[in-house]
Design a protein around this nucleic acid. Structure first.
Lengths: 98, 98
DNA sequence: TCGATAGTTAGATGATTGTCGAATCGTCGA
DNA sequence: TCGACGATTCGACAATCATCTAACTATCGA
């Protein structure tokens, strides 16, 4: 009955996503990216709001990207990030079956 | 609009839940508990399906309980566990707002 | 009361990971 | 081409945590 957005996530994918969401800082970052809905958000802007080093941000973004929760693109000097809501939804759908 | 099951989860609670769900074994255990819907499940039965020591299971159940995802009760020799679906749903609702 | 079964607690250990500084790469404007 | 800015990579370190064994508590049946 639930809208099947795509193929069921593998256990490996579910774990990746869950671990990505389990870090408070990373969840905040994801929320910040998601809150800027009209356009993708530049890393630089995230850095201004989160009190972390560029290296740490880069690490977190890589985790989120590996989990397929965000996608990135380059625009000149800047790297833009946006939330992949379909993946997030697939994860939530899967958990809601418990 | 969304059905407000209860007070919004604090950031601390969200983190607790997310970390509890981020461990594959723990998620499996939670699923197993949830799959036995008619009655609470005995630890002993979980042990038979998961290849872990009693100590490890006890640890995982405590994590799930601390996260408020399950509740336990004693029935003679056995400890019964059941999923607190309202808490899980509150967590999913919160994430779906991203 | 004793033994057996169910679970918990304590302590140890190995693996994972969040964090940073320093060095590096990429891109643009002058 | 060079400098400045944005972002990534590397190596290291401290903290967290999943797991186990061993010892303990709790409950029941005989």
């Amino acid at each position: 009955m639930a809208a099947a957005k795509g193929p069921k996530l593998s256990e490996r994918e579910v774990t990746r996503i869950a671990r990505a969401l389990a870090e408070p800082r990373r969840l905040q970052i994801l929320k910040q990216i998601g809150s800027c809905d009209e356009e993708a958000l530049a890393c630089r802007f995230i850095l201004e709001q989160q009190d972390i080093s560029p290296a740490t941000l880069s690490h977190h973004l890589k985790e989120l990207e590996t989990a397929d929760l965000i996608e990135t693109s380059r625009d000149g000097k800047y790297v833009l990030v946006s939330v992949k809501r379909d993946v997030l939804r697939a994860y939530l759908d899967q958990l809601s079956e418990i």
